[in-house]
Design a protein around this nucleic acid. Structure first.
Lengths: 196, 196, 196, 196
DNA sequence: CATGAATGAGTATTCATTCAT
DNA sequence: AATGAATGAATACTCATTCAT
């Protein structure tokens, strides 16, 4: 009995997800260059050939992983945007970002790993700049509503703190005082809404 | 008649420097994994064999490049420490860091490229953490003298801003308002001298 | 539809045998160091990559060739032990050894080629000593039953003649009077059973 | 003050000897293929360039080492021939051979190492066969005088025992009963003096 | 005579990708 | 859809040999 179209669809989606997850995990753990396609197939529990049915090159797998990671991050941000009214989103945004960092550091590790690789940035550079601009735009909006004098500059500054904090945390998760830093960030940029 | 020991020394030092410079440039431009040893030799204008006369593996070349980059950064920092008395170093330190960023972005590009590669961090991780700790200790010292309530935390925060700013600048040097950000940093952390 | 496990097994066994045979032939003809992995792949009629699918290094291929050669020799000896009762095996053993020498000199050429290479003996030395001891033990047994006064010493002596004869034959197969030498050996050590 | 021609000659001869000795030692220890020219120069305590003043290729060095080893063996044999009258040389010859084996096993190790290497035999094969023939001729002569029925065959046989004994000894010097084997050889082939 | 810097062809090995089944 | 055998170009590294000094 052949599978129905729907079952096939289901299987495809699941297999695809397994491959992506494995690739993501491995890229984050060992780096893109040092991870072989065979590693990924093995980790995903299927044959090399089959993997190529789903992704027709290592590079397209990288693209997909990138999209996957980005979607995960977007999801966290979008959730905040949908549940908080403009003007009251800053703290939640930051918490969303850093909660994801604490719970799934791979996402951000991968994000920065990709972003600092020239070979990869040649392919994904514009995507990265676009994403960054988007999140910063949210910051600008919030900071404007908060009545900051130069919200564009403040947004750049805030974004820098965020990035720096993420990287510092990834470098040494055991010692970096992440929670305190996040509190300080919120106090500095969204301070008036939640007076201590 | 063979060359004198001094002549040999001279040749060795020069050739070594050329190789190092080429490797650094290429690693920063194309990434470690995508740069071949042949690329480096060609860029340095000499044979593969000779390169191995100076560095006995690609990895040891990486180490040397790392040391080279670090020495360059250290140099900039040490100069500040030597010309400014404790308590008045913060602004100069930050200027030194960001001047180097503006004049020789490769140094920092390489720094972060290496730091986000798991395969590389496996080798250089401890070095990185140590370096970071050192610079942060300078910050702590300055912030203590500036009378900050929680200098350790502030130092972590400042360090994060610095790192974030560097990376943002590298991502999009044309648009990132580096000078303004640095001013803001100095104002925020070295602010006692210029009270609001 | 993928091949069945059995089909794969079949393919693997055949390809493995072809590689082994080619490697053995080439090692015997040109020596281990002077035979390149490419030579072997070419001789076997397949790609370098595939060869590494079967043997993960030149050294492991060497090991396999060694085992292959040894198995061939063991086989000849075991056949004798199984078809002849203790006490009447000496002549047959010697004939088995020297028949193999005459029909497939590569086996013994390889055997001695490996045994005289320090680099190789570092890896296979113990195996060699063990094998030698085993065959000599057979000799001791036979010589004991033949009533020799000092069978251990005689076995050493006999073993030396055997080895020397093999090497002399390999040095100059056209002139070495192999058959006569073997007869003489048998006469000297197993003489009483087959009086001339 | 330039050196005199004689002094130069002296230096040349000494340096040459040092190189040869080092090469011989290394070839015997590590094998020809695995010994680099640099290894030899280093062991001899001089520069690569200088070594090439004395021997213009690795292969010619091999030839020289071969000649050196052979000369050493010849020397031992010639000494016997000169001090013993025909007909009484067998025991002394054998003792000379095996004394050299015990005192300087490298000579024989090298001898057999070279002889079993196809790549090397392609160059030195004829030399080897010639040498062998020469020593065997001595045996034939002695055996003839000793009244052996088939001295040619006996010589082949004896030569085989000798070779086999050398190799067995080299394989496991700690256990091989060399002295007893030699005694047995002499008894078997030089037996006329001690009639059975 | 003496040095060691310099060359570059050659070697083992890896790995993304294809394809017959 | 699924397998893993098969390919071969690419890569790090070695080493005999040359040569300017």
């Amino acid at each position: 009995m052949p599978r129905t179209a729907k079952q096939n669809e289901q299987i495809r989606a699941e297999t695809r997800a397994i491959i992506l997850e494995s690739a993501m995990r491995l890229f984050a753990q060992k780096g893109y260059a040092t991870t072989t396609t065979r590693d990924i197939a093995t980790a995903a529990g299927l044959s090399v050939g089959l993997m190529y049915h789903y992704f027709n090159s290592k590079e397209s797998l990288l693209q997909a992983v990138f999209d996957y990671v980005m979607a995960r991050i977007d999801e966290a941000i979008t959730a905040v945007l949908q549940t908080n009214p403009p003007g009251e989103r800053l703290a939640s945004l930051l918490h969303a970002i850093f909660d994801l960092l604490a719970s799934e550091p791979e996402f951000w590790a991968l994000f920065y790993m990709l972003r600092t690789q020239p070979a990869i940035m040649a392919v994904l550079g514009d995507d990265f700049r676009q994403r960054t601009a988007l999140l910063r735009a949210c910051f600008v909006d919030e900071l404007t509503r908060a009545g900051q004098a130069d919200p564009a500059l403040e947004a750049y500054y805030l974004y820098s703190v965020v990035e720096g904090a993420i990287q510092q945390y990834l470098l040494d998760p055991a010692h970096y005082p992440l929670a305190d830093i996040v509190e300080k960030m919120i106090f500095q940029f969204g301070g008036k809404h939640e007076p201590v």
